[in-house]
């Protein structure tokens, strides 16, 4: 079987990257920008269910 070019499926976070990630996981920041982005995302997806 011919395989598609490799896509690395696992992201490993260490040190400061791990710390930032865990902090974000435990205390997610609700920014207005993100709320607006996801609202727009929902609208675009709703008009284009594929």
């Amino acid at each position: 079987m011919v395989m598609a070019k490799q896509i690395d499926l696992k992201l490993v976070l260490e040190d400061e990257d791990a710390r930032i990630f865990m902090d974000g996981f435990n205390h997610p920041k609700v920014t207005q920008k993100k709320v607006d982005m996801f609202k727009k995302a929902r609208e675009i997806y709703r008009n284009n269910r594929a």
Partner: peptide
């Protein structure tokens, strides 16, 4: 799009809060 995963590794130094 593909399904993927993020692994968080414990590291040397101060304990990560909530790790």
């Amino acid at each position: 799009l593909v399904a993927a995963t993020i692994e968080v590794k414990q590291v040397e130094g101060p304990r990560i809060d909530g790790y």
